[in-house]
């Protein structure tokens, strides 16, 4: 440390305090009291300041080391995938190794208990994935989504915790009896009747968009009406009611990596696109109602945004990489 090279390494307690301040600063962004408190803590002794410097040095180095990672690579996903494989290998192979070594006391590394990965899936922002479930159904996960899957002898249950999924139901031929396939959200239970459909969880409502077959909709409230959604229909499902709606977009086009919209207000379009990238994406009220139609590729959101000035009288302003605004062209 350039300002205090002669000081011994700070004690554990101080390092932990420095980390706690750092976290508070991030948690309460722009909070003046936290900022003042942190500065006062740093200034109260040179050991405090040293601990602070070293924690920040460590973080800075980490950031710098990771700087070369290209945009579009989800580092956390790469790491999670690595961990997942490692865990699998360890639980299978290392137990065998331990037996050969003849002394379990030598197992210094903890063998993690098997995680229920097989039944929990999630995607990060910008990521999409599809998978085949045990019954032959296909499940597509859109950006920033999470599901728990729980199949038992009575039902095939998919709990949507966040985001959006599409399901193409399979025949469930390996099961002795035909188990219903259900999707549960905090607003409703949906039961598939041979079918393909998209379910999106939003703040106050669940959006159901039917491509093929039928789905029976059961809102969470006991007295709420139940109804069957048919192919081509879209519904907003609240806890206590069902509203039929017409979407200005093809609800399932994301499974093909595209956004297909028709006469969609720009503000809504940007809200859609914002789901696929981190950071702020907004627009000036004067352009919010401009209508947009077309097919947009979701693989490169910056490229997608760059198309907008060709279609509408707007300019894209990048204040930082994470703060993008769409304004009226002067």
């Amino acid at each position: 440390m350039s300002n205090a090279p002669q000081l011994p390494a700070p004690d554990t307690a101080l390092v932990k305090q420095a980390i706690a301040w750092l976290i508070q600063l991030k948690s309460k962004e722009n909070d003046q009291a936290t900022l003042t408190g942190c500065i006062a803590w740093r200034q109260s002794s040179s050991e405090h300041e040293l601990a602070w410097q070293r924690v920040n040095l460590m973080l800075g180095e980490m950031q710098q080391d990771l700087n070369g990672i290209p945009d579009g690579i989800q580092v956390s996903q790469v790491m999670q995938n690595t961990m997942r494989h490692m865990q699998k290998r360890r639980s299978i192979k290392l137990l065998a190794l331990a037996a050969i070594a003849g002394s379990t006391a030598l197992m210094t590394r903890e063998v993690m208990p098997w995680q229920p990965w097989l039944s929990d899936y999630h995607t990060t922002t910008g990521e999409r994935r599809s998978m085949m479930l045990a019954d032959g159904s296909e499940l597509f996960l859109n950006t920033d989504s999470s599901v728990n899957i729980s199949f038992d002898e009575h039902q095939r249950l998919i709990i949507l915790n966040q985001g959006e999924i599409m399901i193409k139901t399979g025949s469930d031929s390996s099961s002795p009896r035909n188990r219903p396939l259900r999707v549960q959200t905090r607003h409703a239970m949906l039961e598939a009747i041979g079918t393909q459909f998209v379910v999106r969880l939003q703040q106050d409502t669940t959006l159901l968009s039917m491509q093929q077959g039928k789905v029976s909709m059961m809102p969470a409230a006991f007295h709420a009406p139940q109804k069957i959604a048919e192919a081509g229909q879209d519904y907003l499902i609240y806890q206590d009611r069902l509203d039929s709606v017409q979407l200005p977009m093809e609800a399932d086009s994301w499974t093909l990596g595209a956004l297909v919209v028709k006469e969609m207000p720009l503000a809504d379009f940007l809200a859609e696109v914002a789901r696929y990238r981190t950071g702020h994406l907004g627009c000036d009220p004067s352009v919010a109602d401009l209508r947009l139609s077309g097919v947009f590729q979701l693989d490169d959101i910056d490229k997608l945004l760059a198309l907008l000035p060709h279609k509408l009288p707007v300019v894209i302003t990048y204040r930082t990489r994470w703060w993008v605004n769409v304004d009226r062209r002067a």
Binding site: I73, Q74, Q77, V78, M79, N81, T82, H85, M86, R89, R90, L94, L97, I100, A101, G102, S103, L106, T108, R109
Partner: peptide, 30 residues
């Protein structure tokens, strides 16, 4: 117990090797 001792070291290296492989694989995929 030289055998147990050597196995502990070798096991650590095997884990490092797997980790490198898994990471490499996940990275290539991304």
């Amino acid at each position: 117990e030289p055998r147990a001792f050597l196995l502990t070291i070798a096991r650590g290296l095997v884990v490092d090797h797997w980790r490198r492989e898994d990471l490499h694989h996940a990275w290539q995929e991304a």
